[in-house]
Simulated assay, not measured.
Amino acid sequence: MTSARPDVAHGEPVPDNDAIGLPVLYSPDVVAQAFGLPSANWLEEAARQKRIPHTRIGRRLRFTRAQVDLAIQLCTIPQDTPEQPTQVRQRRTTIAQKAQSRRLQARIPARMRKAALSQGPRP
Results as ranks from 00 to 15, higher is better:
residue 16 D to R: 14
residue 19 A to F: 12
residue 14 V to P: 00
residue 13 P to N: 10
residue 17 N to W: 03
residue 14 V to Y: 02
residue 49 Q to S: 14
residue 18 D to S: 11
residue 34 A to H: 08
residue 47 A to M: 01
residue 38 P to S: 08
residue 36 G to I: 05
residue 15 P to H: 09
residue 15 P to N: 07
residue 23 P to H: 04
residue 17 N to H: 05
residue 47 A to H: 00
residue 16 D to A: 11
residue 17 N to A: 12
residue 19 A to G: 02
residue 28 P to I: 01
residue 42 W to F: 09
residue 26 Y to V: 05
residue 33 Q to N: 13
residue 47 A to E: 07
residue 12 E to D: 13
residue 45 E to R: 09
residue 27 S to Y: 03
residue 35 F to C: 02
residue 29 D to S: 07
residue 19 A to L: 14
residue 27 S to H: 08
residue 31 V to T: 00
residue 38 P to R: 10
residue 14 V to W: 02
residue 22 L to R: 14
residue 29 D to G: 00
residue 11 G to H: 06
residue 45 E to L: 07
residue 29 D to V: 03
residue 38 P to D: 11
residue 33 Q to C: 08
residue 48 R to L: 11
residue 43 L to H: 02
residue 46 A to Y: 01
residue 26 Y to T: 00
residue 36 G to E: 04
residue 23 P to I: 02
residue 16 D to L: 15
residue 34 A to G: 06
residue 29 D to T: 04
residue 49 Q to R: 15
residue 22 L to K: 13
residue 24 V to H: 10
residue 39 S to P: 02
residue 38 P to M: 05
residue 27 S to L: 12
residue 37 L to H: 11
residue 14 V to A: 04
residue 45 E to H: 09
residue 34 A to Y: 12
residue 20 I to W: 06
residue 22 L to Q: 15
residue 46 A to N: 05
residue 13 P to Y: 10
residue 26 Y to W: 14
residue 45 E to I: 08
residue 45 E to C: 02
residue 49 Q to T: 07
residue 34 A to T: 14
residue 12 E to H: 10
residue 45 E to S: 13
